[in-house]
Design a binder for these strands. Structure first.
Lengths: 145, 145
DNA sequence: TACAGATGCTTGTAGAAGGCAAGTATTTGA
DNA sequence: TCAAATACTTGCCTTCTACAAGCATCTGTA
């Protein structure tokens, strides 16, 4: 079996999982909240544009996602005092709690699936995953340069 | 960084890749052709239902995908002589060629990204991926049983 | 200082992917 | 022989995402 097939199988499995075990929160929203949280703690503020970059989606998509999260009371838009066009995004208390719950939920799912793995294997697998993702990025950048 | 994050990053990278480097063939179609090919060589025939199971999609989705592939001349439906309700699916010559091209295209993409990897690392990573996918399946089955 | 262009964001529109439910035709088992 | 099961298709809906156009604000420069 080729790596190509392994990847396909993984993606397939994730698709199935996503469909059937619906989590505390739609997967996209978790990514959004996490991105906001991270951008904020990395740079102080958090503009929509940064979030879009962090989740690698179009700004319009991010905009709608934020609107939805705002409607659900998970995210707040605060006017940027230095730029009247922009808003600073931040999690509400509910958003923070919900994010923590969702992360815990996904972590538990993984822990359960990986309960037979040794710490060493987990460590190595994580390392390979990271390396692989980076290499995909790099080779993609080269190819489109 | 947690495995959860690594996975998220991988999925994100794959999404980006899928978007920008459009391949010889829509990714879904490749999976379809490959599934047909495999089911056929494993069981002789190939019913739609089997394909749907192989790609883990709803039968209706598979049905439309097959229709599209048929319109593109990649797949042929032959009436099943033993069952008037069913068709046997098979790749046309064009389908076989196209599949081979697409597989080569994806393989090249991967080879390029992974050109710095040792055979040993590739082997191990593939093993981890397979194991992980299986464990996800298993734990999902348990959880929904 | 006024204005052209850049920037931040939102909204309209469109398309792909996929599921569910209902419908049709055929087969099978009691 | 006929009711239930099966194989598939089709209608309809939702979700996700991109692109393009638009609006408001900001910034650099003449």
């Amino acid at each position: 079996m080729e790596l190509r097939d392994e990847l396909y199988e993984l993606v397939k499995a994730l698709r199935v999982l996503k469909q059937q075990r619906h989590p505390v929160l739609p997967a996209g929203t978790v990514g959004l909240l996490q991105a906001i949280d991270r951008v904020r703690s990395a740079t102080g503020g958090c503009h929509l544009k940064q979030v879009a970059a962090a989740i690698a989606l179009d700004q319009s998509t991010a905009s709608r996602a934020v609107s939805a999260a705002e409607r659900s009371g998970l995210v707040r838009r605060v006017a940027d005092p230095h730029d009247g066009r922009a808003s600073l995004l931040e999690l509400t208390d509910a958003g923070r709690t919900t994010l923590a719950d969702a992360v815990a939920w996904y972590s538990a799912l993984l822990s359960d699936a990986l309960r037979d793995w040794s710490d060493e294997d987990l460590e190595r697998f994580g390392g390979y995953l990271r390396r692989f993702t980076n290499d995909l990025h790099a080779s993609h950048l080269e190819a489109t340069r």
